[in-house]
């Protein structure tokens, strides 16, 4: 009973936040809504008996990735999106794709009716930290190592990408950009 109520509460919250994320043009509002989605998903993970994943979800997504995004939005002081300049057919394309995917969702809904209605074993320990840890360092050791290498690559890549250009060079770039914009305006 309580589980059902919690599921619908957090599912509704997640969908509402997701829609508000796409709807808002201000990137910071989008980011806040996305944090809402992450937190409600984390609560759903708790009801799915996966407390470790729930905690990691908050720690990594809400606590690290989105803080970085908010930081970048504040740092660049982004304005609201300008109105669409891209081709009009994108609206049709997006809408069509959305309908297609929703149809697919309900196809899944219909197809998994044959799947187990109840958890195979309600007292399963699948979500326990100990099991995840053991699986991670025995059966899935190679993927974990690969992910480690991937993270190392990401660190090096982002340091190289985000390093400052030498100041004169940066000013040159900015000058050139402003010149180009002025030319555009004159046209």
């Amino acid at each position: 009973m309580v589980g059902t109520a919690l599921f619908f509460l957090f599912a509704g919250l997640a969908i509402a936040c997701a829609i508000s994320m796409v709807y808002h043009r201000n990137p910071l509002y989008s980011a806040i809504s996305l944090v809402g989605v992450f937190i409600s998903l984390s609560c759903i993970y708790v009801t799915l008996a996966a407390p470790f994943i729930a905690a990691v979800q908050i720690l990594i997504y809400a606590g690290a990735i989105m803080v970085l995004v908010v930081f970048v939005i504040m740092l660049l002081n982004l304005e609201e999106d300008r109105p669409m300049q891209r081709l009009r057919y994108l609206w049709a394309l997006g809408g069509g794709l959305g309908v297609l995917l929703l149809g697919q969702t309900f196809f899944i809904f219909w197809a998994v009716m044959r799947a187990p209605q109840q958890a195979v074993d309600p007292n399963t320990t699948a979500g326990k930290t100990m099991d995840i840890g053991r699986a991670m360092y025995t059966e899935y050791l190679l993927p974990v190592e690969i992910v480690g290498i991937l993270l190392l690559m990401a660190i090096i890549g982002s340091v190289i990408l985000a390093r400052r250009l030498a100041q004169p060079q940066l000013e040159l770039v900015v000058d050139r950009e402003e010149e180009r914009r002025n030319l555009d305006d004159e046209e």
Binding site: I32, V35, I39, P51, F52, A54, A55, V56, I58, L59, A62, G63, A64, V67, V70, F71, M74, K128, T129
Partner: peptide, 19 residues
Amino acid sequence: DVGVLFVLGITSVGVYGIA
């Protein structure tokens, strides 16, 4: 059973308040 992670996670969400 993941109390430590929970505390660290919630503390890291606290940054939003200030930011």
